[in-house]
Design a protein around this nucleic acid. Structure first.
Lengths: 341, 341
DNA sequence: CTGTTAGCGCGTTCAG
DNA sequence: CTGAACGCGCTAACAG
């Protein structure tokens, strides 16, 4: 044994089954069985072994265990960002779903970069996870191929508007947009403005917009003004684009790409003394908690991100083997009338 | 080879070094060296091997690799929650710090439950991580012992007001509270109210309060009113407790346990027509982005959560071995005057 | 109920 | 520059 190995081994606790078995006077298999609560073991033996386990502070090495059992008990998760509260909520659902299992989540953030996502997925698959949970359907060809060929369960989350590799869990953003359009038309609005952000990284915002346009089109209407921010959505961008919209056109309702943007719109109106919804109605998307606590509750479309994460985990725990045909789990949405539209 | 093994192996891609080596007509060692860009390999050999790697879609099994090299390239992270944007921000910093390395983050959420945290830490240590990043100093004795004895690097994040096991990265919440107290006194406020949430799970809010009290005490002042919510902080709780505070007492400045609560306070004032800061000044803690976008920018104390996560990773990448003596990295804070106090 | 045997897939070493 | 041998720590299968 070389110097290097010795250093590595001294560093970590270095208590192995071998050591425990030796001190407890049993075989390694017996220790292993006890640690995994599997198979029959005499109570006396168990007690004796557990005592040495405790006294040594033995923690089984899951890396070795996973290799031997060909089962990593790992779930890989890839989300594009954590800066908006939406994905943390999904992760909370994932965490909740995993709570009663022995699985652990390896989480990676792609920063809305598909090439980075590809690297991350490759890195995750190297850990032989039981499943990969990934946001959306926009992946590089290579990513898609890796996921497909890996044979592990793949859950594409958030969106159910495309054909999944294995399972999709989420809601139809297109239908949600359409429903919101109908809702607003029914409430009598006719002059529609759209306040949005860059779609290139946010396909779902685009789908909602498409749905909106379809509903408007069916009523013989269309957006009379657009104000689109350059980068990602934010309260700041929403505020700024709303100012823009108000300065350049006259609409009676502004539909936002999401609640972050809509909250910015509300703030602009508050600061500029624009009465909502009389002078300008405001409608968001996503149902963030903060919308509820505004002076007037924000009108929005609510989805359940926590549920998406939770259902994703439930689905893969229920059926660890990938089935022949893909499936879709619709977590739904609902329109929250609120007071701003 | 038995049925069970066969099934398990069919499931995963099941391309191993062995297979690659056989098809490329080289030895396993050579494939291994090429995959790790380590050691000298003839360019022709490399090209030949890489081609079969690609055609087979070979992904090295990191579980086996980690076992063989006794180096998992994993970093365990434990945060109490993701429902407030604060911890996702820390995770973003962690993710950014990890970006250029080969390490991966295994993230667990304790739900502010120290027993659950203990379970999670045990589970993480089983993966022989290079380091554990954990929020705060409040752990069970068993957790503390495991972390200490594991020999891996341990970073306690957010807070630097206690003695760390290994490294602490964060800011002094006590000093921040003190600084805010002095700042507000200097601005002429004398009748102080405190709007907070349950401290049992949020030690740092408590530390800030203690610091505030110290500053007030030195000026011969003290809080004349408190409004404390039962559960975790939220915009809703802040709004409700502000209403409470206004109904039962007369203060000229309300200091909040954090920005979530303070935003709730602003919303209450907006809805109730209370002029800020003339009738009531409002001061938060944490410097959330949303505070900046309110009709009036929220006066608050800014900390840098992204930096905390990033510095934590930098520290452990810089020195993979735990040093003899603990150290502290202060990421600082600053008072943002804003317009609400 | 317990022990023995034989790997899991790869990295490391050392010989060539 | 390349290959063979060995072992990482554990689990699976089977024999007792």
């Amino acid at each position: 044994m070389t110097k290097t190995r010795q250093r590595l081994q001294e560093k970590k606790s270095k208590v192995t089954v071998h050591e425990v078995a030796r001190l407890a006077g049993v075989s390694e298999s017996t220790v292993s069985r006890i640690m995994r609560n599997q198979g029959l073991v005499a109570e006396a033996t168990r007690a004796k072994v557990m005592e040495t386990v405790r006294s040594l502070g033995y923690v089984p090495n899951r890396i070795a265990g996973s290799l031997a059992s060909l089962d990593s008990q790992l779930v890989g998760v890839v989300v594009p960002s954590l800066s908006n509260i939406v994905f943390p909520e999904v992760l909370q659902g994932v965490s909740a779903g995993l709570k009663s299992s022995n699985y652990q989540a390896v989480i990676s953030i792609s920063d809305y970069d598909m090439d980075r996502e590809e690297t991350l997925v490759r890195g995750l698959l190297a850990w032989q996870p039981a499943a990969i949970l990934i946001a959306g359907f926009d992946h590089t060809m290579a990513t898609r191929r890796m996921l497909d060929q890996s044979g592990v369960r793949v859950v594409e989350m958030m969106d159910i508007d495309s054909a999944p590799i294995d399972i999709a869990v989420g809601m139809s953003h297109r239908r949600a947009g359409y429903a919101v359009g109908q809702h607003l038309i029914a409430r009598g609005y006719r002059r529609f403005g759209y306040v949005g952000h860059d779609w290139t990284a946010d396909r779902r915002a685009r789908l909602r917009y498409d749905g909106l346009c379809e509903a408007l089109g069916q009523a013989g209407l269309s957006f009379v003004a657009h104000a689109i921010a350059d980068g990602q959505s934010s309260v700041a961008a929403g505020r700024k684009q709303t100012a823009q919209l108000c300065a350049t056109s006259s609409v009676d309702v502004a539909v936002y790409s999401n609640d972050d943007m809509a909250v910015g719109g509300i703030f602009h109106c508050l600061a500029a003394g624009i009465r909502v919804p009389d002078r300008l109605a405001i409608f968001g998307f996503n149902g963030l908690d903060i919308g509820l606590e505004l002076p007037q509750p924000l009108s929005t479309m609510r989805s359940n991100r926590f549920l998406i994460g939770q259902k994703a985990i439930e689905a893969i725990l229920l059926a660890p083997e990938r089935p022949e045909t893909p499936s879709i789990i619709d977590t739904g949405f609902e329109i929250f009338a609120g007071a701003t539209a």
